[in-house]
Design a protein around this nucleic acid. Sequence first.
DNA 1: TTATAAAATGAGAATTATTATTATTTTTTG
DNA 2: CAAAAAATAATAATAATTCTCATTTTATAA
Lengths: 130, 130
Amino acid sequence: MNYSRQREVILQTLKSNVVHPTAEYLYAILKEKEPNISLATLYRNLNQLAENDIIKKIDGLEPSSHFDHNTHEHYHFICEKCKRVYDISADVAPDVIRKTEENTGFLVKKHDIVFSGLCKDCLEQIKESN
Amino acid sequence: MNYSRQREVILQTLKSNVVHPTAEYLYAILKEKEPNISLATLYRNLNQLAENDIIKKIDGLEPSSHFDHNTHEHYHFICEKCKRVYDISADVAPDVIRKTEENTGFLVKKHDIVFSGLCKDCLEQIKESN
DNA sequence: TTATAAAATGAGAATTATTATTATTTTTTG
DNA sequence: CAAAAAATAATAATAATTCTCATTTTATAA
């Protein structure tokens, strides 16, 4: 993987983002710093960065993938109301890889847990309006 | 939800299938019993059945959703070599919903764990060829 | 440093999965 | 059996992502 300015900007933009943006969302922000960047370049680089474990691609948040600069083991929660994506501590499923490998005889290379429901903010909003 | 012959055939076909097919795969099989069925009808019914918790839609297995007639709590593993989807016992992550709700204050309505790697068959094939 | 090869880019076409539209048919119900 | 509600087939439309390709950028090494 050679250096490229576009890839650098993509990575820095993703790192400075608290949320876990979709490609489309990231593209809108990127355009400010790098107005000529192409959507294909963004997708190409996101995939490359993910393959090299520099970032993480979060699948299962239909209809589009989200991207996370945090590569430490952790999981994700998407709020069905506000659509924000939150990190969930890996503590909620201790030894999940080891247990799965022991149960099955499979080799686990990747895993993710995706939760959905209502986040704290949205739960409180709903309570107030009742 | 009214009765419809198409929905019945879709459900029975899914139930008689050990694998966890995509819509496209299911469509090919369905055509034998119900040659005039439309792909839109299949998608409409799969979504309806999933909304009513009669079947389960498995997201996170890009590039397309898979469908599972087993609605009991369990998880999924996709083999990166043979692409088969296997069930994983819920035992590998005990109390994962309760723990997540306690940690966050969120309300968890759904969750799934998706693992990927190599299944037992493919691991053995690789060993043999070495 | 410069020539060459390898990698990356932008622009837009192409592809794939899925959903929406609509006229028609099927199912339910009183 | 008639009317209303739901479902269908066919196909157009959409949205996310990947592919193509001519051009530009980056790395290499003579």
